[in-house]
């Protein structure tokens, strides 16, 4: 996608532990949404197995039949040998392109000579790193979430052969741990978690002692409490050469979020769309990273 093109829209993998029915209903609905790319799979915790990879492949077939490009995403933190085994079979068996979220996946996909999407946790911060990924088979890369317009623009023009994808809507994935913080909040260990994260379809908000929403607990993953909303920055995203705008699923109002970003592609006024989407964020929006500031900053206006 060149710098003047219209970006495609993608749905990121669902980061939360939704019920099987909720996942099915979400993707059934998404068949009719104006998204172009859909990422499927469990990227956070290997204990979450309400859907198996074959279930995701079946959902993928249905979405592909509806005209979507389907990508299967891998786990981000791979600790046990069994997880590595699962990763190897996923990379081998997936009928769809795979998003590599750990260098282990890159290694496997390279060996299998399968083109892939380089996920946001591979830490690709410069052109030399991107070139290496391209040589390994990457066709698209997702900007690390802490990088902004300036770096995005420099990298897309330095490595034009790689399509870029930028998180335009969603709580920011900030950290991964061996510890499950949702289980900890329930005074349980991870091994005995009772799948407590299944009760939090949008994670659990952590506030500072003066009441400010700060983080979101999502099992072993920590997210921002604020939702990154780059609708107002749509022209800058296009200028930076974004090929795909990534929208992170949430349990409510996702259809409106997609509609908002689609409206931007059809000429709607960015400020107006941003304002319309603002109430759909949960506890508030942020856009600091895109403007070279702290991620939690809201209403940043210039790079």
């Amino acid at each position: 996608m060149n710098a003047t093109g219209t970006p495609r829209l993608s749905l990121a993998p669902i980061p939360y532990f939704w019920s099987r029915e909720a996942v099915m209903a979400f993707y059934e609905a998404a068949r009719d949404w104006p998204v172009d790319v859909v990422y499927l799979g469990e990227t956070v915790c290997p204990k979450r197995r309400r859907l198996r990879s074959t279930d995701y492949f079946a959902i993928g077939e249905s979405l592909a039949a509806a005209g979507k490009e389907v990508v299967i995403s891998t786990l981000t933190l791979i600790e046990a040998g069994s997880e590595l085994g699962g990763l190897r079979s996923l990379c081998r068996d997936s009928p769809f392109t795979v998003e590599a979220n750990d260098m282990a996946a890159v290694g496997v996909l390279e060996r299998e000579s399968r083109g892939f999407v380089a996920g946001p946790t591979l830490n690709l911060y410069n052109a030399a790193a991107l070139e290496r990924m391209r040589a390994a088979g990457a066709r698209r890369w997702v900007l690390p979430v802490e990088l902004g317009a300036q770096t995005a623009g420099a990298l897309t023009s330095a490595v034009p052969a790689l399509e870029s994808e930028i998180l335009a809507w969603g709580r920011l994935p900030l950290a991964w741990s061996a510890r499950c913080f949702t289980a900890r909040a329930e005074n349980r260990s991870r091994d005995d978690c009772g799948f407590a994260c299944g009760d939090d379809p949008d994670g659990r908000v952590v506030r500072t002692q003066d009441g400010q929403p700060f983080l979101t607990l999502n099992g072993i993953q920590t997210q921002s409490a604020m939702t990154q909303n780059l609708a107002a920055d749509y022209p800058a995203l296009c200028n930076a050469g974004a090929g795909v705008l990534r929208l992170v699923p949430q349990s409510h109002d996702m259809e409106q979020v997609v509609a908002g970003f689609d409206a931007l592609r059809n000429g709607a006024a960015p400020e107006k769309v941003a304002e319309e989407l603002a109430p759909l964020t949960g506890v508030g929006g942020c856009n600091g990273y895109w403007h070279g500031a702290a991620g939690l900053v809201e209403g940043a206006a210039e790079s």
């Binding site: 920011l172 900030l174 983080l215 500031a293 991620g295």
Partner: peptide
């Protein structure tokens, strides 16, 4: 892969 400090301070 920890952006907690980054999120708060940049």
């Amino acid at each position: 892969r920890c952006l907690l400090s980054s999120y708060a301070t940049g």
